[in-house]
Each structure stands twice: as C-alpha cells, then as structure tokens.
Design a protein around this nucleic acid. Structure first.
Lengths: 334, 334
DNA sequence: TTGTATGCGTTATCAA
DNA sequence: TTGATAACGCATACAA
C-alpha cells in the first residue's frame, strides 16, 4: 500500500467525500500509477448488486431492437450500469433462463421486449421483480410498461390513406394472437368504420412480421376479385415484401397501389420509393424503460399506468391518391 | 440445508461427479424445489472469472453488427458465457473504458470490432490480453484476427462490372486512413488495372460509410465531364444513398448506371431493385471469433495468422450491361 | 465419498 | 478523518 488502510482506499476511490485532501489525491495518484481498479466481482458480492441489467428481446437479429438498445445503453451507462443482451428466439426455455439470471445475481434488473412470461408452472415471476416491459404487453403482470398506442398509430396510418381518397384498403396483420398485432388490426378496422368504408372479403391477410409473409399475403390480395388500391402493413419488413411482389407483378407503387408500413426501420427512408410508415421513437423507448428501471432499482415509485410514447406518421413516397381519382382529376382539367 | 455440507452441495450442483448417487439426486431435488441458484458474484469472486465476454462495436445502431452479435452470442451461450455489448461511438475514451473492463473482472475476454486500440499513451493493451479482433485490422497488435479478404472481394465485385462490359467504373470509398477502406479501394484499382481500364479523374470519391456521403459522392460523380456507367460503393448504406440520388436525378438503375454495394445488409435483397453486393457471413464471423476467444480463454493455442472467411458476390438487380452496349446490341439485331 | 476450513477483494460497521 | 474487522457466498485444498 501507500501507507493507508484498504478501507480508506475504498472510500477515496468510491468518492464518498469522507477522505481528507492530502490522502485523497495521494491515493488517486498511486491508483492511477498502478493502474489499479477495484475488482468487480468482489464489489458485487459485497454490495449484492451486479450493476448490470438484462435486455431481453425476441430476436437479436432484428435491427428494430438496435435503436432500443442504444437508448437503454445510453441511460444505463450514465448510471454506471452495463447492459447484457439476451436473445430468446421466442423460446420459452430461454425466457425462463434469462428470468433466472435476475435471481442469481447476473443482473439487477431486466427490460423485457418479449410478449410472454416464463411458463406459469415454473415461473419465478411473482410480479414484483425489477422488470420493465417495453413495447410489448404482459397482461396482468404488475410490471411497469412503456408502450406506444398501436391502435391510434394504425388508425392514423389508415386515415392518411382514406384522406388520399382510398376506399379499398387492405391490411396485412402481424401474428394474430398477439396483443400488438391485434391492436394494429383494430386501429385499421376503427378507421375504416369511422369513414364508413367496408372491409371486403379477403382484405385482412394474416402475416407474421416477416418479409416472406408480406410476399405471400400480397399474392393472395392480387388474386382477389376486387383489388385494393392501398395496403396497410403491420410492419415495414412485410411492406418491403409487398412492394417487391407488386413490382414483380408489374404493379407500380404508389401509382397503382399505395403501401404503408409500421416501424420506420433503418434505411426505410432510403428505400425506393421511400416508405411511408409509422415511426416509433425507439431510442426514447429504450431510454424511458431504463429510466423507470433505475427508479425501481433505487426503490423509488414506478408508474402503475403504462407510459405511452408518441408515434409519428412519416408520409413519404409509397402513398399517393388512388389511380381512379387522379384519372378523374386529370379528366376534369383537360 | 438438507443434512449435508455446503461443499457437497457445491460439488453436486457443479456436476464434478464427486458426489454419490443417493445424495446427488436428493441435493438436486431440493435445489430445484427451493429454486436455489448459486450466486454468480460469489462464484466469480472465488473463481476469478466472470463468465462474460465483451463485444465492442463501433456503432451499436448499425444492423451490420447484429448478425455478428448473434453468432457470438450463440457460441458464447453454448460455452456458458454471457455477452456484454459495448458501443464506442468511435470515441477513444470509451474504447479505453471497455478495455479496462477486461482488467477489473467485468469480462473475461473481448471481441473487438473497432479498428483502433486505446490511445497508446495510457493503454492497458500489452498484446497478450484475451482479445480477438473481428473484421477490422489492428496492425501489429498480436491479437488473433478473423477477417475477410477485402481486396479480393472488392476485386470480384469490380470484375463483375467489367465482365458486364463496363469501362467507366467509379468507386466510393470508406473513410480513408482505415485499412478496411484502403483494401477495398486497392481491390478496385487492381481490378481496373488488370483489365487495362483507366481510372478517370474524379472517379474515386471519398465517403464515410454513411448514407449521406453516398448522396454527396453521387452528386460529385454526376457533375463530372464523363459519367461513370457503374459505381462500386464500399458499403451498402452508401449504395442506397447513391441509388436514391440517381433516382432523384432521373437516372435509372441499372439501365443507365449499375451499382454494387458491400455488406449485404438486412433487407438489401428486398430493396427495389434488389442490390447487387458482396455478402459477408456475419454470423459465422461472430461464431469464429468467439470460438477462438474460447480457446484462448481455456489456454489453448490461437492461430497466429488471420483467419480468413469467404465472402460471396450476390448478383442481383442493380447491375446490368452498360447502355452503350445494349444499344449497340439492339442496333445490330434490328 | 463427504466435511472442515480458508480465502477470493471488496464495502460497511464500529471504534478510535 | 481514519483504521481494524467482519461478512458477502461460494469453491477448493486438505483432512477424515
């Protein structure tokens, strides 16, 4: 040592302000010189905290989660936490595993972005763990939620199409038992109903958020007796599938058919034409979730109502008035 | 307890095979019943390992790294490791921070995907830390590397354009002091040289891997006296910028100008038209890096030559023969 | 095959 | 303002 007790060193380096000036700087200097850093495991054992949080997502390969991660990571860093990323691949076993990591000291808290809890039979989830759910809904769980208003967002997207003059508007849903897909579909239905528009047979196609299902649903739509002039997709990825298929079939976007997505993925604006879509403030969502988790960890109160963050409809190049309208319009003027 | 010493429990749960059968299952059962899990911090302190590795990337917002993460995570999980993701934002301070996390027990090893080491003056990097570098090159560092052959990949991309009949081929580079950008540029130059083609003034534009620089470089290219009929971009993101700008200027891809990218991003194949690009096996790269790191951690030998993983040119919709050729061709037949 | 005892490197309590 | 001391929960060397 430098002639001082370990306790004093600990206090000095922790910045408790309980160490007098001559010693303080001397300790700091020699710590820097020796490149000394307190051992994390020992500290964790002593303090009973790991200063790490777990971000559990459905599919780590989906860029969607990246921006959320960035928000989480930024807020975590500021508070001295590291972020462990967990990937469930929609596997309940994995979910249980990650949940268990809360109990064994791996992490102090968790941000859940999967819609499920571990199987109820062997669940460790009593509802009072330091868990925050982001974007998904774990019904009746008692955890704080950070959400977007999927219903309102879908409604505004469809309204945009209606305002452009579309009447035959189709919808490609997400996987359907899920609340998120359900809400978006209900938003679509509400918008149609409020506008007095009928949803024709086959205009609701069931997708699964993946590109290929966009392609399939688009084919089904094109086989219908009455074709839609606009398609609202429950996410961007399926919208890309739809647009690709439309192009292959010689249908022009947005001249023949308008397409709206949901998510505003990385590069969705760079698409040709740029995709009209609902943008979610993903980094904000991550940051909010982390902030709530931090309050929870510090023993403060957490909101018992879901925190709703605002979405924004980005009107870009894949939506236009329907052809019938533009034709009529041109007709009148010529 | 269940009438047995802590040591026996430890041995039983660790699966050392040193516990007799009647006791073994009894311990396991009661552990399961009590939902007991060994405390991670205590184990880490005792074993002097954290069973965590650190994946440090340049920009966690870039989907490019996601697939690498998946590969790393998969290999890590199999070996019982967790993955901590670090985000440097190209900030040397952060890089030093993450490097320090190796020393303080936060992580046992690190996979570096940034091209730099911490500033040499206060570096902890002596060259024998458990570090594996992936895709980037840290020259003279002594760390094992997992790389792709950027030179050969760029060469094959440009050769593809040459085989299509292009002669005026431009290149948009990455940020230029960096080895990766350098190699790709050299691949471009080699291909041109081998084909006896001249690189015209202004045909090498300097980008920075971001979308906007693709747009800017494209404008510069369009202002040239002789226009290129093909553009090889050092990554997909810039290629998207280029294609967008070409479209805005009324230049058709691939009819007027062919574009080739590099990376094969998520959804690059879903682009309209689908992007011709160099595909890197990102998950494999992550897995390889992690595998090497695991050998290193277990004391085994690591390759002292860079491990090269193969890339693949994905020929899709943004490349075609140059207009002059197709016109001549049509001319002959008409 | 099992139990006993020690120490991993901190932080926190208490006393000085 | 600082020092001595105990304890965090486990894994292991050694003894039984």
């Amino acid at each position: 040592m430098v002639g001082v007790s370990p306790a004093t060193v600990s206090r000095a380096l922790a910045g408790t302000g309980l160490v007098a000036e001559p010693t303080l700087s001397r300790i700091r200097e020699t710590a820097a010189a020796l490149d000394y850093r307190p051992n994390v495991s020992a500290r964790n054992l002593r303090t009973q905290r790991s200063m790490a949080i777990l971000l559990v997502v459905r599919d780590a390969g989906n860029p969607f989660y990246l921006e959320v991660f960035k928000g989480v990571e930024a807020a975590a860093r500021e508070a001295g936490y590291s972020v462990l990323m967990g990937n469930t691949e929609d596997d309940p076993v994995r979910e249980t595993e990650y949940f268990a990591m809360l109990g064994d000291g791996h992490a102090d808290g968790m941000i859940l972005m999967t819609g499920k809890l571990p199987a109820p039979n062997d669940t460790r989830a009593t509802g009072d763990e330091p868990v925050v759910v982001a974007l998904e809904m774990v019904e009746g769980s008692g955890y704080p939620h950070v959400v977007i208003d999927n219903h309102a967002a879908a409604l505004s997207a469809v309204n945009h199409l209606i305002e452009l003059g579309h009447q035959n508007i189709a919808h490609i849903t997400g996987p359907l038992p899920e609340p998120m897909s359900q809400r978006r579909m209900e938003g679509y239905r509400t918008a149609m109903k409020l506008a007095g528009l009928a949803i024709r047979e086959g205009f609701e196609q069931r997708g699964d958020y993946l590109l290929e299902s966009g392609v399939q649903c688009c084919r089904a739509l094109l086989a219908l007796p009455v074709l839609p002039t606009a398609i609202f997709c429950a996410n961007d990825e399926m919208a890309f599938g739809v647009i690709g298929e439309l192009n292959r079939q010689g249908v022009s976007v947005p001249d023949d058919v308008s397409v709206v997505g949901f998510d505003d993925l990385f590069l969705s604006a760079a698409f040709q034409p740029p995709l009209t879509t609902v943008s979610q403030p993903r980094a904000d969502i991550g940051r909010q979730a982390m902030t709530i988790l931090l309050s929870r960890l510090s023993g403060a109160a957490v909101p018992d109502e879901p925190v709703v963050v605002a979405t924004q409809l980005k009107v870009r190049g894949t939506t236009a008035p329907p052809k019938s309208l533009t034709t009529q319009h041109q007709g009148r003027h010529q």
